[in-house]
Each structure stands twice: as structure tokens, then as C-alpha cells.
């Protein structure tokens, strides 16, 4: 099957950002399965910064490990860039559409890869919140 990936996808695939694992991560999101072949582990470190006099939690660091196709790797790289530095509230709102948009499109058969990215991020945040007994 021929795949026409955008330049942005290829660039993120060939030079992925924020690759690796965060030891003692504050939140972890694991998605994917061996049948479809794409597996993504996302790690976040949460920090606090002052915004308008209030201490707000934000994604201080984020890293990923991905076993998957070119699209899955590009999506992983992109989700870390989109989420890094964002407050948790902002990060929770990042959707798969945002990822596809930032990657300048994905072939239709690869849309499901963008869901993996958004799901992993939301799971990592949820993991952090549940560990820290925040009320949601």
C-alpha cells in the first residue's frame, strides 16, 4: 500500500522529539495493542507554575516510547510537543484532530494512530490525577 505522508509527518518520524522514558514519572499512559501493531507509552512529569497569582499544574516534561508505524511515531512526537508546557486543563483538551492538523494531515487509513496519541496523553493525565487524589 502506498502511503503519502506529509513532510511534517516524515520529519517527526525521522527525527522524533522527546523520545524515551521518564523514570519516576508522575503519570503514565499506555495505549495500543499487538494486533494493530502500534503500542505507545507516554510519560509525564507535572510541575507547578504561577499564572495570575495562582499555582497551576502543568506538564513540565513529557516523553514517549513507541513501537509502531511511521504515523504512530510521528503522532507520538507531535503529542509531546503539543502537550509540553501546557497546563493540565489545556492538555486535556488536546484532541486527535489537533494532532492531525499539526502534522499537516494523515492518510485516512492512519487516522486511528492519532487517536492513540490523544488517548495516551489523556490517560497519563488521568493517572497523575488519580494518584494525587484530585477531584475532577
Amino acid at each position: 500500500m502506498t502511503l503519502n505522508y506529509s513532510k511534517k509527518v516524515m520529519e517527526n518520524f525521522l527525527h522524533p522529539r522527546n523520545m524515551g522514558k521518564i523514570e519516576n514519572a508522575d503519570g503514565v499512559g499506555k495505549v495500543g495493542n499487538s494486533v494493530c501493531g502500534d503500542i505507545l507509552n507516554l510519560y509525564i512529569k507535572v510541575g507547578k507554575k504561577k499564572i495570575r497569582g495562582k499555582l497551576i499544574e502543568y506538564i513540565k516534561d513529557i516523553k514517549f516510547q513507541t513501537l509502531g508505524c511511521g504515523a504512530a511515531i510521528a503522532v507520538s512526537s507531535m503529542i509531546t510537543q503539543l502537550a509540553k508546557g501546557k497546563t493540565l486543563e489545556e492538555a486535556e483538551k488536546i484532541s486527535n484532530k489537533d494532532i492531525v492538523h499539526e502534522l499537516e494531515g494523515l492518510p485516512p487509513v492512519k487516522y486511528h494512530c492519532s487517536l492513540l496519541g490523544a488517548d495516551a496523553l489523556h490517560l497519563a493525565i488521568k493517572d497523575y490525577l488519580s494518584k494525587n487524589k484530585h477531584e475532577k
Binding site: 502511503l3 505522508y5 516524515m10 518520524f13 525521522l14 501493531g37 502500534d38 513501537l67 509502531g68 508505524c69 511511521g70 504512530a72 511515531i73
Partner: peptide, 14 residues
């Protein structure tokens, strides 16, 4: 092990 074929094909194509 530890890799997905399409990614490898794509990288080799490059």
C-alpha cells in the same frame, strides 16, 4: 523484535 515493518520500509525508502 521491537520494530514495526512499515516504519522500517519507510526509513529504508528514505
Amino acid at each position: 523484535s521491537g520494530i514495526e515493518g512499515e516504519a522500517l520500509v519507510l526509513m529504508l525508502d528514505k
